[in-house]
Nucleic acid binder design. Sequence first.
DNA 1: ATTATCTATAGATCTATAGATAATGC
DNA 2: ATTATCTATAGATCTATAGATAATGC
Lengths: 215, 215
Amino acid sequence: MRRSRAEKAVTHSKILSVAAKRFRERGLQGIGVADVMKDAGTSVGNFYKHFDSRDDLVMEALAESFKDLDTLEETVESLSAYMAEFMSDRHRDAPATGCPITAFAGEMAQASDGVRAVYTQRVKRTLGYYADHLKGGDAGARHARAILMLSAGIGALSLSRAVNDKALSREILTVLRKELTGLAERPLPAKRTAVVKRIATAKQAGAKKARAKSR
Amino acid sequence: MRRSRAEKAVTHSKILSVAAKRFRERGLQGIGVADVMKDAGTSVGNFYKHFDSRDDLVMEALAESFKDLDTLEETVESLSAYMAEFMSDRHRDAPATGCPITAFAGEMAQASDGVRAVYTQRVKRTLGYYADHLKGGDAGARHARAILMLSAGIGALSLSRAVNDKALSREILTVLRKELTGLAERPLPAKRTAVVKRIATAKQAGAKKARAKSR
DNA sequence: ATTATCTATAGATCTATAGATAATGC
DNA sequence: ATTATCTATAGATCTATAGATAATGC
């Protein structure tokens, strides 16, 4: 039986919501259109009235899944707290609602151009978010630290989910929680211009000379 | 036409060699038995005379793919050189023969127990390899740094392959090459016992007092 | 006699489309 | 008249098996 346009939009949202979860849970290649539609409480035949193709669903669901990252960013009171939550048991054990950058990192190389574009945009946004919340240094140094933190974060979260050993999984999270909260809190060294560097070098040389003399 | 047992072993090796590459290239779910057999130059029907199931192939091919990690470990002259190679354009652009820990990190959570067990064993071996080549610190500190390095390494390699932006991809590799070679070379601080810590604290307090006095 | 390989195919599953139904929206 | 949804199915693809062929190995 036909529903209203408003109700169609609700159906559309429901499909996206389910897909955003299932794709993260089972991988972009690990779940079919039929399963998604069933979980969304509608029929397979209805799918192509909502999306042009499966890849279209992947693209929209990917964008949808990023909303959970928005929520995390909004919920948390500092970059350090963000990192603590990112490296938590809770996050490891809830991939369906967890970080999509992590969930899809390995599959993105095989994804379509459209999907990769959506993904890449969000990687850049996240790097910006990290860099904006770091202290000290210049823009380049903050950007570099952001890259390190994102790489280490998604690598550790993936590994903690991948390994079959609970103790090791916990250890990975613990080590990286400490490391990443540290990197979030510790200010970057102030930018040293060429002149400042020359002065610092001269100071060190002078101190060394003084030590040598005093012996 | 039937071949000899020795020739069967060659066929088996060929299948594994192809599968080890294709799985890394396309993902564990991204390539079928028929394609592997075709690439190996043999027929689909012959597959189940070589493996009990597709999952058996995945398990053996995963073990096979780890040989490329052995080669990297053997080729390289130091952990720092290992990290430089790991974070190279060459490695990023050759996933088929590259690090399997990276290639399968995202899919491992959905893999069978057998496959995960093989994977987990190799993660532990690799952490041991890193820890053994680090300098200074105690065993725990070296293990922790190994976890950080592996996490950051596979995360960065995955991201560099995932993003659709060449400049960002290159930047990720550059930042982490510098960071990881640094972590490989920089000795860990010597273990500080409670007594040593108390002495160090006392020294600092004394120095502070002296500075205050001299003003 | 055994078996390494081949061709052929069963049976499941997946994307996508066709056509019917019945309610909405003009 | 349009369209949101449904049932049914076409056509491709994937894992696994059956049975034939022809060479190996005892």
